[in-house]
Design a protein around this nucleic acid. Structure first.
Lengths: 121, 121, 121, 121
DNA sequence: GTGGTCTAGACCACT
DNA sequence: GTGGTCTAGACCACA
């Protein structure tokens, strides 16, 4: 609504996903500082409280750490970060396979379909 | 996905997906009658208004037809149904590949990851 | 500040503790409905959003469940509830012992001290 | 305790507790000099103002004395120190018993639970 | 009426 | 300036 956000998911949750994606891609590295809640709020035309909520969720996931008066930082725990990447990869693949099988496609069709699309690029 | 979030998708949208899935799987065949709005409302403990909205969306997608006084039926247009199946397959695969690439995985890793998971079964 | 709350702990957290205590005592039983966020907000002279935050935390702890449009309920999972009671008991005892030992008291002194106080009642 | 909350206690208060603990344990003896405000500030990565406030509280409790130009010292009043130890012991035990009883445990359960944990060591 | 999300604006502790 | 908490008030989907 406000700044290029999808409608059905809550904004704070989209922010969570966005940051996780940046970390998994390596755009945000271990120990790196995230924008302040006010900065990111301005950037995405969103209330700082909404960003705050996203950061709180990220902290709950042990993906970021906040240091009082200093800011919010990607965790220094590199194990957590590689674990996160693997976890997301497996989840993504699992739900993809499950969805395809639910639609009635077998392993052969899934692989072939994937190969077609990958050679498109 | 990663945390304990409520399902954020609107219920009517979940119903749309559910019906489409049943059609694609062949559980609901061309011309077959869908449960009435009330029936399905009772079955899923959902307000009939919500079911109504889902059926309206399905009609907009040319997947079902409503016949006044008779009920709602899967379209007789079998081309539309096979087309639907192909369309969903391609969409699913496309977004899967896009998501994986966004996370920084290349074609090789995607294929390998998929093969691992498929051989699990 | 507003309604009989301790100063150093955030209000939402005090609410979390309060509800957990009521559950552990058995004042709130499995499946029982909690007051609505607006009700409890009025009762404790606190903003409904603050209550909302407390309820969200309780849900994260698998202690309550919310049902859309219906309200917030103590979980039906009785195992979780007895587990919670045991967990709190052990945590309480552990930190008590740890604190006493840090202050330089040995097991004998801790037991004796406790017995004195218990016979006071 | 039960969830992943930030430490909500003010830092100055944590310092007060820390010093009192050292005194009660005997790590800091009657008349002994405490680290200067700056030293302790550096040691715990805390603003000297915060340490200052902690020392002021300790002085109010008649646990330390500040001598201008010399520094801050544990009181020479040994009676005050033994009294402090007893006082803390009783407070600790009292609130422990009160908390356990609030959670619905009776004297028997409290004693038994304590004995289990003490024999663990 | 019920919970869920969001905004605007405020105050606090800490650096 | 930074995150953390809280309020007041609004809108939404759901029952």
């Amino acid at each position: 609504m406000t700044g290029g956000f999808n409608e059905t998911q809550p904004i704070y949750y989209q922010l969570v996903q966005k940051v996780i994606l940046q970390i998994v891609r390596g755009d945000l590295k271990a120990g790196e500082k995230l924008p302040s809640v006010r900065e990111m709020g301005g950037q995405f035309k969103v209330n700082p409280n909404t960003v705050q909520r996203a950061y709180a969720d990220l902290e709950r996931l042990n993906v970021v750490e906040t240091r009082r008066g200093l800011g919010t930082f990607v965790t220094e725990d590199r194990n957590r970060l590689t674990q996160l990447r693997e976890q997301l990869k497996h989840e993504k693949i699992d739900t993809f396979i499950k969805d395809m099988q639910e639609m009635g496609f077998n392993a052969r069709e899934i692989k072939d379909g994937l190969n077609e699309h990958l050679s498109d690029n």
